[in-house]
Write a protein that binds this DNA or RNA. Structure first.
Length: 392
DNA sequence: AAACCGTGGAA
DNA sequence: TTTCCAAGGTT
């Protein structure tokens, strides 16, 4: 780890900076434990730079069990930087569909093109160069450099923060930038030269399987005899956490406009929430407005056409995003007049009802889509068992 | 610095 | 049901 001597003087060491003997004990116990009890994960079978990068991007704020199927599918579909760089954004987002934080997928697409077209097809080896690629911040740079390239770099993620705060009984708030900085320094001192990758993976495995946020399994912890929080009975209290503020709630409507067997959908702008994904047109209900009025207004404003919604929604969906919640009502609509055009969205398209699943939709829209298909298939099967979908 | 950016599972 | 939070990054 490259340590800037000036910053080293200006930043106060943690009061509980470990002694060399303790550092050695932490390293040895953690590595011994990990070689026996470390997790066998798909992306660890072969630690190539591409596979490590894909895994680390998917694992940002996302649990291992969620990532597992996505990782397998992604590697099959985009086995290399070159394959990813050659793909279209719609294909990339379809492969990411449902994983959330979609800027990760768009950033990976852009980064792959930079790697292929400007970096000779290879990922940089240093954290500083890695950080210049979109989607790679301090954590991911350290993870790739240490795990894929064997560089002596630390990582600091939620797991490592939790383990370190408990191990040294750090009562300061890790969301404080100064505390975060000293935790990075601490992590850097702990990294055993030449074994940063295994050590970092061990630290994260410990945090994920033993030193968990709730009810840590201290009896089976390799560090139980040298853990300050354990000695003081503080393991459940650390790390200290700040109250998160209440998330707002919005009432939202969407329009399912069907005409001649085709459905009107739009693609969201790349910047912002759910960027680049397709959706049914709609938006928030304004104060004093009825749901049906909101449908008509939103479709007029965003798509430029007049529609006649049915009086009642065919499904109501509750959904939580990262920083707000919604209740979404979906209305089937008749197209009254006008030619659809992308006013607010990036694009609009009339799509065959049975081709909708080839587009990348956010989860809330997927719930609407499933309800719609159930509706349409029930109708066609009860209408005459012809097997042909009949779409009004 | 603080807000923004998804989703699913656990308790 | 609600809240928490999980291998963070960007602006």
């Amino acid at each position: 780890m490259a340590i800037n001597a000036r910053e080293e003087r200006e930043t106060p060491m943690p009061a509980s900076a470990p002694h060399p003997a303790r550092i050695a004990a932490i390293r040895r116990r953690l590595l011994d434990w990990w070689r026996r009890d470390g997790r066998d994960l798909p992306w660890r079978r072969r630690r190539t730079p591409y596979r490590v990068w894909v895994a680390e991007m998917m694992l940002q704020q996302t649990q291992v069990e969620t990532v597992r199927p996505y990782f397998a599918r992604w590697l099959r579909r985009f086995p290399s930087f070159r394959a990813l760089a050659a793909a279209r954004q719609d294909e990339v987002l379809k492969c990411w569909e449902g994983l959330g934080y979609y800027s990760r997928a768009r950033n990976m697409h852009a980064a792959a093109r930079t790697v292929v077209h400007e970096l000779g097809g290879r990922l940089p080896r240093t954290t500083a160069e890695l950080r210049t690629l979109p989607g790679i911040g301090p954590y991911t740079a350290g993870a790739i450099a240490s795990i894929a390239f064997g560089a002596d770099e630390p990582v600091l993620d939620g797991n490592v923060i939790r383990v370190l705060c408990r191990l040294l009984a750090i009562r300061r708030n890790p969301s404080d930038a100064r505390v975060r900085k000293s935790l990075w320094q601490l992590a850097g001192r702990l990294v055993p030269p030449g074994e940063a990758g295994p050590f970092n993976e061990a630290l994260m495995d410990l945090g994920a399987t033993i030193c968990t946020p709730r009810r840590p399994d201290c009896r089976n912890c390799p560090l139980r005899t040298i853990c300050d929080a354990r000695a003081k009975g503080l393991q459940e209290q650390l790390p200290v956490k700040t109250r998160r503020k209440a998330t707002p709630h919005y009432d939202v409507v969407v329009a399912v406009i069907i005409k001649g067997g085709r459905v009107l959908i739009d693609r969201r702008n790349d910047a912002g929430l759910l960027g680049g994904l397709w959706e049914f047109p709609g938006g928030k209900i304004e104060p004093g407005e009825s749901p049906v009025q909101a449908v008509r207004r939103e479709v007029r404003e965003e798509i430029g056409i007049e529609v006649a919604p049915r009086s009642k929604p065919f499904i109501t969906v509750s959904h939580a995003y990262s920083h707000f919640r919604i209740t979404l009502q979906a209305f089937r609509c008749r197209h009254v007049r006008g030619r659809a055009r992308a006013i607010g969205p990036a694009a609009v398209r009339w799509v065959d009802a049975d081709k909708l699943t080839t587009y990348a939709f956010p989860r809330a829209n997927q719930k609407v889509l499933r309800a719609l298909q159930t509706l349409l298939s029930d109708r066609s099967s009860s209408a005459g068992e012809s097997g042909k979908p009949e779409i009004a």
